[in-house]
Structures are given as C-alpha cells and as structure tokens.
C-alpha cells in the first residue's frame, strides 16, 4: 500500500526488530516492526476486550479521502496498568497515534503511543526489556 495517507512522519527507527509486542498472544508476524508511522486521526470506536483492545479511527490521506484504520494494544489488564481505561476514547476524539504498521500495507497497526487531549499514553510495540533490564 502506498503511503498516501496524511502521515506526519514516517520513521524507520534503527531498532533491532522487536520479536514480539508486549504480552502478545498474537505475535508480531503481521507487522513491520522496524517502522513507525505517526498519523492524525479521529476515533470512531474503542473496543476494550481480550485478547487485545482495538481502536478504530479515520485518517485523511493526502487527497482528502478518509481511510479507516484500526490498531491494537494489549489486553485490558495491561492497559489499565499503563493508565488506559474502558472509557478513555469516544467517537469524534482527535488523537495523534504512533503506530507499528502491517507488513502487507493494510490500514492496521499496533499503537506505540497515543496523544489524547494533550496527554501522552504508552501503548505497545516497543521491545520488552530483557529480565536483567527490569530488575529493581
């Protein structure tokens, strides 16, 4: 899929390929884990459910056409721990999303980060720290 969307930035972060997203029941095989895209979007639906919460949203491409996307994060328990909630989005909310896009170009992704009402929330898609990194 050509990136004709209104993408504010497309960054191939030089990170090592993330073997999985955080906690993913479903691995990262669908995703181009070396890429991040950032989009301005309007929320259409927010599904708070297992195995992964899903955000549905619309994005304008560079011709002004609306492209419908959805993107996942982790399960409700993990997202609660990250400060997310069942009622945090409502249709019409304007958000800035940083996503790991799908390899096949379909408008789906994993949310690395979302900015909602000026507040930044961490999603998933980052490389989990190795056990030795997370020791306290």
């Amino acid at each position: 899929m050509e990136r004709k969307l209104y993408i504010t930035s497309l960054i191939a972060l030089g990170l090592a390929a993330a073997p999985t997203g955080l906690f993913a029941h479903h691995g990262s095989a669908l995703y181009d884990t070396n890429k991040r895209i950032t989009v301005q979007a309007v929320v259409t639906d927010w599904l708070w459910a297992n195995p992964h919460c899903l955000l549905e949203f619309d994005v304008k491409d560079d011709k002004g056409n609306t492209v419908h996307w959805n993107a996942e994060v982790s399960n409700p328990q993990d997202m609660t721990n990250l400060g997310w909630s069942r009622k945090m989005f409502k249709p019409g909310d304007e958000v800035t999303l940083t996503l790991v896009p799908a390899k096949n170009g379909e408008p789906i992704g994993r949310i690395v980060e979302v900015i909602l009402n000026g507040k930044k929330y961490t999603g998933m898609g980052v490389r989990p720290p190795a056990p030795e990194e997370s020791k306290q």
Partner: peptide, 11 residues
Amino acid sequence: RHASKGQNPSK
C-alpha cells in the same frame, strides 16, 4: 476486525 486483515496479500 483486526487479525484477518493482516493476512491479506501485500498491496
């Protein structure tokens, strides 16, 4: 909603 779309052939 989600996983099935990721299985489509590449565009």
